[in-house]
Amino acid sequence: MNIVIIGGGPAGSEAAYRLAGEGYTVDLVEKENSIGGNLNNWHQLFPDRKSAAGLVKELQQRLNHPGITLHIDAEAREIAESAPGKFAVKLSNKTVLHGSAVLLATGYKVFDAKRKEEYGYGIYKRVITSAELENLFTNRALATLYGEAPKRIGFIHCVGSRDEKICNYHCSKLCCVTAVKQAIEVREMLPEVEIFCFYMDMRMFGPGYEEMYREAQERYDIKFIRGRLSEAAENIHGQVVVKVEDTLVGKPLRMTLDLMVLMVGMEAADGSGKLAGSVQVPLYPNGFIRPADPHTGTNLTARPGIFTAGSCTSPMNLTDTLTDARSAAWQIKKWLTGSDKHA
């Protein structure tokens, strides 16, 4: 029996590998020209600082399985139930794939920081996103970014997350720990630089995260200021002047930064809504796909035969994404062997 998996990121790749191992044939659809998804834009992973490229390679090698057919440069456009329990997935290259189950692993997209115009992204030269900082790490370009190494760097948390103004009420979960990880990496590269993190709350939910946060303060001399950035301006030297309220002290604060990093949050990928809509799978108000039940029905959707894996249902770290993908593989197997039809 064939399964169509949409999305070749960590979730889709892991699920494909697991399902192929169970003897199913799998069509894995990826809209870019290689697998890995957003992971391709990362340098190192928290909490163990594993190389992101290494993990992508590992996922890729596992796809060299005779049961897996990879369709790259192909975007899934629409899902239709051609017969009860039979699904047809139309691709942008006119191919139609058929499967007894469809797994949505469409992931997330990074928040477009231009939508928070007051932070000056795309307007001020020295404002970059966390994703771009990862790229600077990979290319070892941070120290010479503006001719000389920055002397003061600020990380702005919750850009595009927990923000009513842009209608993203949800927490993207990972930006806090990413900022801690990135701050430590910066410190390792530039021992003299001053580093500030401007946060609302530090949400250190995963194993080892809270320890990393403590280390960041104690060993790496990174300063955490509780307060949200209100506005940023550029001075004549091209530096970024920020206005923040330090809410623990209760006073407004002005600071000049040589580099400002926006910790961009996660939003539902554009494809999620389109594909889920084509099979009447409901979404949360924030655009992520709603599972059949938040406790007992994860990986399942309101439509039998349509499954989900990874961050298309909510912001998720890599550990949880891969676990979720394995869980999805098991749910699909259960459905296809008929022991749990209409679960």
Binding site: E117, E118, G120, I123, Y124, E231, A232, A233, E234
Partner: peptide, 9 residues
């Protein structure tokens, strides 16, 4: 206006 630097610039 302070929140829309494109306008003030």
């Amino acid at each position: 206006g302070q929140l829309t630097p494109t306008v003030t610039r």
